[in-house]
Design a protein around this nucleic acid. Structure first.
Length: 601
RNA sequence: GCUCCCUUAGCUCAGCGGAUAGAGCAGUUGCCUUCUAAGCAACCGGUCGUUGGUUCGAAUCCAACAGGGAGCGCCA
């Protein structure tokens, strides 16, 4: 068997739906029998591109036409003649230029649905092998406000971490906080002026709006030369580890930490704090090791590694600077130290990760390519380990330009979330008044919070992460159409049926799929496992969003057009089962996106 | 100047080498006496930036060009 074909087959075994697997094997057997081919040839089976083509399609005949010197439809027909799939599907059809279409028998679909009803993983296998993975995401800067730009890293990173955990990997979620650097000199100097007693630790202070504090310090720094000098002295003192400076630094970090944590709690995002300062002591060693590996070059006073295959303006190789002319280290050094620590074995004080994922904006791809290359050349990346930058597009304003912190027009994450919840609340209250429903304040608050946060998360995750993102308040907070509330609503409808009918668990009665709405819902439900594995392959959460939206659409149609509780006796158990599996699938899928479900809304 | 990304319906975007390119929003029109209408059904809407190439088959892969964005030695 050829290498490509074997790889394809291996992939199928690992990742494809059980039925697809079975069919793929029968198909390959039939091909081997039907066609005079020297070696086994790839003849892949893929999900049908449209419902009218059935469940699966095989397109291999067209590619073989030239090799065999026969018309593709004839080839397809010979393969079909050798196929034995009666137990799984209707007789395969040759269509168009030479497609073979497969339609699974309703009884087979029904049996699959029944089986999945009792599986907490809904058919998704555990990964093999399971790996220790670090996901590095969120990473805001101390003394700065989290804004919409941080949302993408936080939400996408959290989603990827949830997915990999669900697949069985051991995931360490690290928050690479910007908690070190020259800006602290300025902040500490400013603290001296504003709250001198806090420095000695004799007084607890609340700095209130840290962002305003940062801005004041910055303004003063830009205007006042004496203050600049003071700031520089503070940097030196901090780096020398003077207790007073360290105390001030801790105070600033603590204040920021509280503000960040409030957001993470609200977003239900778990992170282990591991700021840049964590790597301070390892920095000299990074440079030393690079020296030993003979990678280090001193250029214009700076110590750097010249990169292979990356050139600058003058066509000369670009350097990655790891120690500045003044002896200070920079973020590249920190990133290298982090890579070493994460990939090192636990015995050596490392994390023992085999895969490290960085969720940052696409603008940093050059930087990561450089850092990864240097780590590789320094021999810090053991065989089988993988460093991966998972980039996302920029958040742009309506003008198509990057939303920048300093432009002043940035939207604070806190405000965005507040606004989202306010809108959800307003919408809910209005709706309840219209429908003359009574609701407790607790209910309203809880629904508004869940719906608002869900809308924000879904708006971000449903977009392909690699493309730039035109930020729009109204679009992000919309409650109609392809939005989180739409998916939540489908779920709520099912819970309504459960409440009304007592339970979704029907008396033991065979599932029998008849109505087209039942069949298409069953088909959609059964493809969940494939979608999850697809999403893992590319780390694209929008694939899962698209699936869940499609599933919800199919469910809403089913709900709209067929009665469940008032269905005829022979249909009710089937419809209840479909409702149950729909609810489970939506709940699990939304859970992987980091979105909570509610029972009423 | 160099490198990377993007260009698909009026708007915002999906689209994994396969058949007649899909959603949502906006617009037009129907549907609540029935499990929640945050819904359903229907209509309208396309030179997939341009030109070549590879392929049985290209929105998808390759090249060039045009337009937009980002990055490019001591910030992160």
């Amino acid at each position: 068997m050829g290498g490509a074909a074997r790889w394809e087959l291996h992939l199928c075994w690992r990742t494809m739906l059980k039925l697809r697997n079975a069919l793929q094997h029968r198909l390959l057997e039939a091909v081997a029998q039907a066609l005079p081919l020297p070696a086994a040839v790839d003849f892949p089976l893929e999900p049908a591109t449209k419902p009218e083509f059935g469940d699966f399609q095989a397109n291999g005949a067209m590619g073989l036409a030239k090799v065999l010197g026969r018309p593709p439809r004839q080839i397809a027909q010979v393969v079909v003649d050798h196929l034995q799939v009666d137990d799984l599907c209707h007789p395969p059809q040759v269509a168009g230029p030479g497609f073979i279409n497969f339609t699974i028998r309703p009884e087979v679909l029904a049996a699959e649905v029944e089986e999945r009803l009792d599986q907490p993983r809904l058919g998704v296998p555990m990964a093999q092998p399971q790996q220790p993975v670090v996901v590095d995401f969120s990473s805001p800067n101390i003394a700065k406000e989290m804004h919409v730009g941080h949302l993408r890293s936080t939400i996408i990173g959290d989603c990827i971490a949830r997915l990999l955990s669900f697949r069985g990997h051991r995931v360490l979620r690290l928050n690479h906080l910007g908690d070190w650097g020259t800006q602290f000199g300025m902040l500490i100097a400013h603290l001296h002026h504003v709250a001198p007693r806090s420095l000695s630790g004799r007084e607890q202070v609340d700095l209130g709006d840290l962002v305003a504090f940062y801005r004041q310090a910055k303004t003063r720094f830009d205007e006042d030369e004496a203050f600049q000098e003071h700031s520089r002295r503070e940097v030196v003192k901090l780096q020398a580890g003077e207790p007073e400076s360290l105390g001030a630094w801790r105070l600033l970090c603590q204040q920021s930490r509280q503000a960040f944590q409030a957001i993470y709690d609200r977003l239900d995002v778990q992170l282990v704090e591991r700021g840049e300062s964590f790597y301070n002591e390892a920095l000299p060693q990074v440079v030393e090791e690079l020296e030993k590996a003979r990678l280090l070059v001193v250029d214009d006073g700076a110590r750097c590694v010249f990169l292979q295959g990356m050139t600058g303006k003058d066509g000369q190789p670009l350097p990655l600077i790891v120690q500045k002319r003044d002896g200070g280290y920079n973020y590249a050094t920190t990133d290298l130290a982090a890579i070493r620590q994460r990939l090192a074995s636990p015995d050596a004080g490392g994390e023992g990760a085999e895969r490290v994922i960085y969720v940052t904006d696409a603008g940093q791809s050059n930087h990561f390519a450089a850092v990864f290359q240097v780590a590789q050349r320094a021999g810090w990346v053991p065989t089988g380990c993988r460093l991966q930058h998972v980039p996302f597009g920029l958040v742009q304003g309506a003008d198509g330009k990057k939303l920048k912190t300093r432009s002043g027009a940035t939207i604070r994450l806190r405000d965005l979330l507040d606004e989202a919840v306010d809108r959800a609340r307003h919408d809910l209250v209005e709706r309840m008044a219209q429908e003359q429903r009574q609701g407790e304040e607790d209910f309203i608050a809880q629904v508004a919070e869940t719906v608002g946060i869900a809308a924000v998360k879904y708006a971000d995750l449903s977009q392909n992460r690699t493309t730039n993102y035109q930020f729009s308040f109204d679009r992000m907070l919309a409650l109609q159409g392809n939005t989180a509330p739409y998916l939540l609503y489908a779920y709520v409808r099912i819970q309504g049926i459960a409440r009304q009918g007592g339970s979704l668990v029907a008396a033991a009665s065979p599932i029998c799929l008849q109505a087209p709405q039942e069949l298409s819902l069953a088909r959609q439900l059964l493809s969940f496992d494939e979608v999850i594995l697809e999403m893992e392959q590319d780390l694209l959460p929008n694939r899962l969003c698209a699936y869940l939206f499609g599933l919800s659409q199919t469910f809403n149609r089913f709900y709209d057009q067929l009665p469940v509780l008032k269905a005829p006796d022979q249909s009710r158990p089937t419809r209840l089962a479909l409702c149950r599996l729909s609810a489970e699938t939506i709940r699990l899928g939304l859970g992987l996106l980091g979105i909570k479900t509610i029972d009423r809304m």
